[in-house]
Design a protein around this nucleic acid. Sequence first.
RNA 1: GUCCCCGUAGCUCAGUUGGACUAGAGCAACAGCCUUCUAAGCUGUGGGUCGCAGGUUCGAAUCCUGCCGGGGACGCCA
Length: 654
Amino acid sequence: MILEQITEQLTETLETRVLTLFGHALDRVVLQSPPRLAMGDLATPLCLELAKVLKRKPREIAETLAKDLKLPMFVQKVSVEGAGYLNFRFDRGAFTVAHMQSVMSPPAHAGERVIVEHTNINPNKAAHIGHLRNAVLGDTLVRCLEWLGEHVETQNYIDDTGVQVADVVVAFEHLLKEGPADVQKRIEDPTVRFDYFCWDLYSRMANYYIDHPEAEAWRRDTLHRIETREGDTSKLAELISRAIVRRHSTTMLRLGIEYDLLPKESDIIALHFWDRAFELLKKSGAVIHEREGKHKGCWVMKLEGTADFEGMDEPDKILVRSNGTVTYTGKDIAYQLWKFGLLDRTFNYRKFMSYPDGRILWETTAADGSPEAPKFGSAQRVFNVIDVRQAYLQRVVREGLRLLDHQREADNSIHFSYEMVALTPATAEALGLEVSETDRKRPFLEMSGRRGVGVKIDDLIDAMQSKATEAVREGSKREGLSDAEIEQLGREIAIGAIRYFMLKFGRNKVIAFDFNEALTFEGDSGPYLQYSTVRVENIFRKMQERGVDAKLDDASLNALTLNEGLSDEMWELVRRSADLPAAVQRAVESLELSVITHELFELSQKFNSFYHKYPIMNEKDDAERQRRAVCAEVFRRTMRSALDLLAIPVPERM
RNA sequence: GUCCCCGUAGCUCAGUUGGACUAGAGCAACAGCCUUCUAAGCUGUGGGUCGCAGGUUCGAAUCCUGCCGGGGACGCCA
């Protein structure tokens, strides 16, 4: 907040000054932290860029600019350094006191209606760690957007009429010879995890198809019955998909992930979204009926010649097959149009479940809806969180909007793409999967629900939790904790570790999942941030217990000038804390959420060094103790807010 | 075949809208630090032709071209 003001004012001052002195209009002023804070608190390489244009030496330009430069509040002096950098030094004390009041305050922003669609797991089996990356990225994006002031709606799309659900239905009906009543019993049986049961059943079915290709007739028949909502088969599909979605919701809730709406494919079909979208596409000429050639009898979207699809052999995309059925991409275009409020029809809504915090999860329905349902859809910006393998399809959807002359909405259709989560051969083997000689030499092995290859999210959380609980139990200074408290701490640490692990890698990096690496609580990990926070909390708790005054009230802060006494290490905590709001903004703009975890990790490292070097409670000198306490307090507030933003819990003790 | 992503220390990764320095962390290895706010921590040591070769530039891990290695996408699947 304070930093933003300084940056803004400096930018303006420099722009006008360069214009008056050199008659040159700058299109940007880069202001960043210098590599080391000993050099200054904010720096610009402006003069190096200007040197080119003005054909003068950078240092000379810098000297001219720096002379009599009007400095914003909190900025004490400007100097010319290195090859011609302008470096600004802050009044550390004044800045610190001002910053402490406004730690992690978001920039002003007019709230936009934004939809984030994430998770989207086929409701036919347990969720695995590939889905986990999607959900954690999506959920964190939602939190960041909300922090920035947007009005965010979180959607978890349910493909309840697809092949994957159909295959499990086929397995129940034909392999197990079970109907809705039997399946209902399984769902209600507390001794089985229904999603785990379906995980095995689904891969069993996939194997059955391989040995009995004729069984594919069952699938076609089942898909048809589901789509036309016929008899026990369709009842079974609904039963299964609802039970699995409930399981997924429970799993995600363990990590603090909630949704606003479950849009269901069955409702998109029942409400004829596609028919309407199809009319629009036909009218605009975006799709045409092929009478010749390879795609004879299909309705295709002509993409040849459009910028995004240049150089492709067969860029055209079939939306309606020659047998008259619509492809997934077609339905996706209709759904995307609805998200922007561009389809002149909508869903009805009913309550799916209530979260413990009171939030309601709604689902779409084609039947009568609830009058209490909020308004969904009609967003100005849409983020679809889907892994990079869907990039082509996402481009087709976006192009669909463009061809319908919705340029702005096409630009605001954002594919948040990220790389997949795979398994290291060692982890695959540890899971009891067969790993061939050639596979053993590969860097990673892809997961596959179909083949039953994967690490289930609940198993990961369970493993993490028992390891964390163990660690808490072993700790020497944790006596006096009840079993329930220890369990609680274990849970919080596990969540912190998992969420952090899913965020810390750049989104374009394949995560080759390794159990040992994921289970670590040391170094660059969630628990490191939690531990640092617990430590700083302890300082203030202990001081209060022993009646040591930190002197952080307004009067005490104003009475003492901090400027001289703040060492570089102390000041660095404050200065880096001030960088965080910009980091969150940068993270959202680049969809690179790892910048936030990275900043927090470095900040925590600085704090831990500070912690060892500068004891607070036992410092006898009041002024010195106050200086240290102020910096610790800034760190404490920063971590509280930032961890809250990332939904990483702060345990009471560790 | 066309397109996209990745290649930085033994391993996992930061750093890539060009810039300050000796290219940074974590893990692993080695050496220290717990009567002092919690050692899930801190301090130190060793460890790198930034895949290769050219080019642009005052300046390149970062931009351009080509190549090599790994992964992915391009379906009348979802």
